[in-house]
Design a protein around this nucleic acid. Structure first.
Length: 338
DNA sequence: AAATTCCTCAACCGCACTGAC
DNA sequence: CGTCAGTGCGGTTGAGGAATT
């Protein structure tokens, strides 16, 4: 379909609405109801295009608009829904009565997005920005807090900056445990294509003595880690407190990836086993498949125990956003990394 | 106190979709 | 089937207020 020509721009007013215009529009809609936006401005005596009228009504004048600061519950819902739906602001707004897509979009871009970035979380993928994370803490979490490996030392500083190296480290560690000979063969086959600066640290993986705990193997087999910046998530189920949102969210959730299963590790981390359908969709550092479990997984986003009222400040909400979630793919070809 | 920078958010723009003809 | 009007949606802009220098 061809693009709809915008309404006749000649003589039409743009910019902020005046109180008089608001009154005209409100009065007209109260009498005739919304709709037929193209003819509405003329009938209402407004020098505006229908689009502008519709926007003004839906985003500002509608009586059921809920104005004011977003509550923590609303913010929580927005983040979780964004994890599933992405920038589907209207769909997200549908779960937040009284909030408009425009308002949610603005709030996301001006508040939530920035905070996620500050806390090292990619606001697009909801995955941690691994270029900012300390790889050793990730691996340590992977190993159920058994700090048997100092991966930072193993891989050098570059490892802290490259999510692909994280995957590589995982692959190598798994290979080392399960089949050292295959590991050596693997390295031999791929070493020619490695960045020389990475060869030494990677090789050290092969020579470092370590005992690989149970979770390492599980990690490599499942291909997924779920952790916070400071440790693993609790296994508490996500609980939406916003009215009517839970059922709707449940419905939404059912449309997405299968519910992951959870295995309790010795030191109380909860490690979900990703379904076999999970996939590593991007090699450029984005982990899109994380989205699929944003709701269904027992994320710690139910942090009502920490923040109990809607007047919490942005800073107060900071710690909530420090939660991290990411996947590590298995079976990555080393050639794809470099 | 003035100038500058930063931040917020209402409003606009343009594309996409749907249904009527 | 193609065209067009109506509408919805997401991305972007810019005015104005707040904060900082």
């Amino acid at each position: 379909m061809g693009r709809t020509p915008c309404c006749d721009k000649s003589g039409l007013k743009k910019g902020p609405w005046t109180a008089e215009e608001d009154l005209k529009l409100t009065n007209y809609i109260q009498v005739h109801g919304p709709g037929n936006w193209r003819t509405l401005p003329k009938n209402a005596g407004l020098q505006r295009c229908g689009k502008s009228c519709r926007l003004r009504w839906t985003n500002y004048l509608r009586p059921d608009i809920r104005r004011g600061r977003f509550s923590f519950e609303e913010e929580e819902t927005i983040i979780q829904l964004h994890g599933i739906l992405g920038n589907k602001w209207s769909a997200i707004a549908g779960q937040l009565p009284g909030r408009t897509d425009n308002e949610i979009k603005n709030y996301w871009n001006t508040h939530i997005r920035k905070r996620l970035l500050r806390n090292g979380i990619d606001p697009v993928t909801h995955a941690p920005r691994l270029d900012l994370l300390d790889l050793s803490s990730i691996i340590s979490s992977t190993l159920c807090n058994q700090s048997l490996l100092n991966v930072s030392n193993l891989l050098g500083t570059q490892a802290l900056l490259n999510p692909q190296l994280l995957s590589l480290a995982n692959t190598l560690l798994s290979l080392k445990q399960e089949n050292p000979e295959m590991l050596m063969q693997y390295l031999h086959q791929n070493q020619l294509n490695l960045d020389p600066s990475l060869q030494a640290p990677i090789a050290s993986v092969c020579t470092t003595t370590s005992t690989v705990p149970c979770c390492t193997s599980m990690l490599s087999q499942t291909g997924l880690i779920q952790a916070t910046g400071e440790g693993f998530f609790s296994s508490d189920k996500t609980n939406f407190s916003y009215p009517n949102s839970q059922e709707n969210l449940t419905n939404l959730t059912n449309e997405f990836a299968a519910q992951p299963h959870y295995v309790q590790c010795s030191t109380n981390p909860t490690v979900p086993i990703l379904s076999e359908t999970s996939k590593f969709q991007s090699m450029d550092g984005s982990f899109d498949s994380v989205r699929s479990s944003a709701i269904s997984s027992p994320t710690p986003l139910n942090s009502s125990s920490t923040f109990v009222n809607s007047s919490s400040t942005d800073d107060e909400r900071e710690s909530f956003s420090s939660l991290l979630k990411f996947e590590i793919p298995e079976g990555l070809d080393i050639n794809d990394f470099m």
